[in-house]
């Protein structure tokens, strides 16, 4: 019998919630006995996606960011979703060192980190409609 479990979080687009989101996901997947390295990889990827939603998705911190985490056996799927500005050119946005906010000293490494630390990253976005980042990783592989 495969383990199945799912949770959804929704929180204000405030930077203080970046830590909360990655801790919550780490706690949720702990039941599946991931290695410390796997937990750190997932925490980093969640932090990147949530930070993007907060910095690039919205100007208003009262807007909401959603994080959905699904476990199916050894497969973890994490969806980070905002209903904000969206991305016109996803391919360019995902290039390493590309950033639209150099004044904030953003490194442009966000998507590169998600791709480095997860097995699969998919980005669905359209201007004015928000951004959905779907990330998958097999734990204990």
């Amino acid at each position: 019998m495969q383990n199945r479990n799912q949770m959804k979080l929704e929180f204000d687009a405030r930077s203080v919630n970046e830590g909360f989101a990655r801790m919550a996901v780490a706690a949720f997947i702990a039941e599946e006995n991931p290695t410390l390295d796997e937990i750190s990889d997932i925490k980093t990827a969640v932090s990147e996606a949530v930070t993007n939603a907060i910095i690039h998705g919205y100007d208003d911190p009262e807007q909401k960011v959603a994080v959905i985490c699904k476990i199916e056996g050894r497969n973890v799927e994490i969806v980070v979703e905002d209903k904000g500005k969206g991305i016109a050119d996803v391919k360019t946005a995902m290039e390493p060192f590309y950033t639209t906010r150099p004044e904030l000293e953003r490194s442009g490494m966000g998507f590169a980190f998600m791709e480095a630390f997860m097995d699969e990253v998919q980005v669905i976005s359209a201007p004015g409609e928000g951004t959905k980042v779907i990330m998958r990783k097999k734990i204990g592989a």
Binding site: K43, S47, T51, E105, R106, S107, M109, G110, A112, F113
Partner: peptide
């Protein structure tokens, strides 16, 4: 114990 790409931005800056 934890650093994401925001830390990289600070260091490169």
């Amino acid at each position: 114990e934890f650093m994401d790409s925001s830390g990289i931005g600070v260091i490169i800056g």
